[in-house]
Design a protein around this nucleic acid. Structure first.
Lengths: 337, 337
DNA sequence: CTGATAAGCCGAACCGGTTAAGTAACGGCG
DNA sequence: CGCCGTTACTTAACCGGTTCGGCTTATCAG
């Protein structure tokens, strides 16, 4: 219950408040001896800087913002986000930065949040996820002058600093693998096409399907288990049945697996399934799901480092994090003959 | 984006800063006419209070703290937390409170975080989850004078305000159901026994097993899919095989289902599975899992309301949120004859 | 010995609000 | 008419830091 202030330290050291501030912030203006004395007293009194005061005068909040514009339901279902947040946190807590996490319903609310944060000076910078095609958040952030790192392909980032994974290469790898198993048809259960990542994978899928001379079809969903299941059911029961299905996340892949089993089909004997965004989910099903794996926690950490760099004056640039890696498990195999 | 301050509003309205503050905070001391004028100007200028300044003078941060002391891995796997956080957020954003979310490795770090927050005056109150038996956080929070609402049984809360669900009643309901199907044996794949909820369910399980004259056995795990799978494998392959298994979360139940299938057994024909903490996971497996369901999002919201009440001077008390409800799906049935 | 330079420190303004204390005007009442 | 209690503001202190201009004093070149 100490409530130790800089003034108290100044009193005990017999110097002014200003000198104490310089000493504590490792800035020139005090002698080594005084600095040492101040630091010693501060440590003895267990002084902790008052965030509000520091923020008010220094105009730094030492807080990053992250807005998630997805339904509460999606957030609960998708392991992706918690992992990403965990990665962000791991970096921030080292630097004793804080994270302002806000869950909102849609992009409009997300933009309102940015306006509010910018006006309140609540955050030093933001991490922007779920990049869209022609994302309206980009001009807004520019206008607000809010430092930001976007999570997504440079093609979508319009010159803003971003961190990305190569979705095109990953889609190529996935389809090369499927084709190499002998499949002649492949379906894609995709997220909403307005999502930048989905858009990029859509295009990559089209190109790769033509290149490999496969029968390709695409179903767009909202990323949810329900729609993933529905899409799978339709693919397997209506029209020519694809022998391989590639999902845009692991949740839909797991839901798809249940549909396959519910229809009395077998995986991979009747149909090959490939998930995206590999998480534990893919490992605990039976059979375990083949997936395009990438390290979400590391991704969150990487993005956070880039934002810190940006605030330290680094030049904005696109930064390739990694390319998802195909992890072959038990849900993929040769097509039925 | 020049920042609008209260001073600017005062200038334009021709009144003092103080008057503006009274007007904006709905406090007596200004006439209705002046108040209206101030509010109008503030709206026109799109004034937003500077959080740091307000916090510094009013000693309120309008921020709640939530520390999650689990491995990043667990957080990623368990849908529970994201749902809880979502519920907390939904209440806070209405009140324009913020949430400081911190992910740490263990209870020691969690306590260090509370110390830091208390010293910095960073949060007005905290929400404490994963209550333990003889939880060391309780005396610490008392000492720090940090307002807190605990999530857990009053028996564990030592008089601190808490919100709980009746784990004993839920366990009774689960075992009554299993016994009513004709099962004579039941196993429990539990979390770590130092967790208060686990402890309570352990005791309830023992009592109910005796009451119903069942063969009971308990395996303790770390809540993870890996250990849940291992426990299931052991139960089904070593010694007398239980005909029903009750899990402490849904993740382990899903992992258990995969083990059952991997062993060539069928659910529910060979073994009945019951999950806890019902989430989408339980619905998207095949067969879908019978579960003790409770509304995590609502739980988070409820806890947050209690903390707000507490800060508004409400008397600390225990508050029963709800009792988990048994949702019967396809993983439970009569035991093999 | 003198003047310039710089290191070390002080005092005070400042960030943007909240709030206690003080003041002027007004109206009711004996 | 004078006294008193409200009402509606204003003034200024304060929260706990950061930072800038300026004052001493020591150092050193000329």
């Amino acid at each position: 219950m100490s409530r130790v202030t800089i003034k108290e330290i100044a009193r005990r050291c017999g110097v002014s408040q200003g000198a104490v501030s310089y000493a504590l912030n490792n800035q020139p203006g005090v002698s080594a001896a005084t600095r040492a004395r101040v630091l010693k007293v501060a440590a003895e009194l267990e002084w902790v800087p008052n965030r509000a005061a520091r923020q008010l005068s220094a105009a730094r909040s030492e807080t990053f913002g992250l807005v998630l514009a997805r339904s509460a339901q999606t957030l609960v279902e998708e392991p992706y986000f918690m992992g990403f947040v965990g990665g962000v946190q791991s970096v921030l807590s080292d630097k004793s930065y804080a994270l302002a996490l806000q869950v909102v319903a849609d992009l409009d609310e997300e933009q309102a949040t940015y306006r509010k944060w910018a006006a309140e000076r609540r955050v030093d910078g933001v991490i922007v996820v779920d990049l869209r095609v022609d994302d309206p958040r980009i001009p807004l952030l520019r206008k607000l002058g809010l430092p930001a790192v976007l999570v997504g392909d440079p093609a979508l980032a319009d010159g803003m600093p971003c961190v990305w994974t190569d979705g095109t290469a990953a889609m190529n790898a996935a389809l090369d693998y499927v084709a190499s198993l002998g499949h002649r048809s492949a379906a894609r259960v995709a997220g909403p096409p307005e999502y930048g990542d989905v858009w990029i994978r859509d295009r990559a899928f089209d190109v790769a399907v033509r290149r490999l001379d496969l029968e390709g079809q695409v179903c767009h969903t909202d990323f949810s288990a329900v729609e993933g299941a529905a899409a799978t059911r339709e693919l397997l029961t209506v029209g020519p049945r694809p022998t391989a299905i590639i999902y845009d996340n692991d949740l839909m892949a797991v839901a798809g697996l249940a549909v396959v089993q519910g229809l009395g089909l077998r995986t991979p004997d009747d149909v090959t399934l490939v998930a995206w965004d590999d998480s534990t989910l893919c490992r605990i099903t039976h059979p375990a799901l083949t997936a395009m794996s990438h390290n979400i926690v590391g991704y969150g950490a990487e993005v956070t480092h880039r934002l810190l760099d940006l605030l330290n004056g680094a030049r904005p640039q696109a930064h390739l994090y990694s390319t998802p890696l195909l992890i072959v498990r038990d849900s993929s195999g040769r097509p039925p003959s």
